[in-house]
């Protein structure tokens, strides 16, 4: 069975919904804007991590990525829509894989672009304390991969919960509140949370047990689990 028609269909569906293209744009805008604001604030610029100063806004970019990953699937969860999708493509695993691919590829592209844009913008603001080129490269790749994993995590959770609203109202408070609070209390456990673990790759230095790549691997494990469980639920249930 060829995968191309399924991908092509998802590509048309993505492009024809403004909410989705807007969410992609919001990833770049949110990340860059908040990073510049942080880099430009005088009291933090010296003391904090030089690389993460350029990626401070990625938490906000992650919210846009969550919105994208959620909406991409929830737009097919309205009454009757899933039936229409599965009537066109009875192999639900193939359908879900195409959906996930059409979440991953655009977000990866957007995420890499975001990394480059925010670095260049912040470099102009930061001046002397700018990170090294090797760090920059890691930061850009990390930014792309982490945003992709975040979006896919949201897609998996949406499939599991069968609701975009439930997913957003779970993930966004989690990202905004819980992760910050727990992160301040105990960095050990917080480092294993899906959003925190992946963000280690956006730092010049780190002190926990996880490094940049093992951090992304932890994020990937969360995402993989969410996609597997979500896909399993989608496949098993009546549409």
């Amino acid at each position: 069975m060829s995968f191309a028609p399924a991908l092509h269909a998802e590509w048309i569906k993505l492009r024809s919904l403004r909410a989705l293209t807007a969410a992609l744009a919001a990833i770049v805008v949110a990340t860059t804007t908040f990073s510049i604001l942080f880099a430009a604030s005088p009291d933090d610029s010296g003391a904090s991590d030089p690389l993460f100063t350029s990626f401070f806004g990625v938490s906000f970019g992650q919210i846009a990525a969550i919105a994208f990953g959620t909406t991409a699937l929830s737009s097919d969860l309205r009454p009757g829509a899933l039936g229409l999708a599965f009537a066109a493509m009875p192999d639900r695993r193939r359908w879900f894989a195409a959906k996930a691919a059409m979440v991953a590829l655009p977000v990866l592209g957007t995420g890499l672009l975001t990394g480059v844009v925010t670095l260049l913008a912040c470099r102009a603001v930061q001046g002397a304390s700018a990170p090294t080129w090797a760090e920059d490269l890691r930061g850009v790749v990390g930014c792309g991969v982490q945003l992709t994993l975040t979006a896919l995590f949201a897609t998996g959770l949406t499939a599991l919960l069968r609701s975009g609203v439930a997913t957003l109202s779970l993930l966004i408070p989690f990202l905004l509140v819980l992760s910050f609070v727990v992160g301040d209390l105990s960095s050990g456990i917080a480092d294993l949370l899906p959003d925190r673990a992946g963000q280690i790759a956006l730092h010049s230095t780190w002190d926990g047990s996880l490094g940049p790549w093992s951090g992304l691997a932890v994020s990937a494990a969360w995402t993989g689990a969410a996609l597997l469980v979500g896909g399993w639920r989608l496949n098993r249930r009546d549409a």
Partner: peptide, 20 residues
């Protein structure tokens, strides 16, 4: 009600067409 409200009808049909 299966078609997404924010999508144009032609795009809705195009996506279904390419999938098959």
């Amino acid at each position: 009600g299966a078609a997404h409200g924010a999508r144009r009808a032609r795009d809705h049909l195009r996506a279904i067409a390419v999938s098959n």
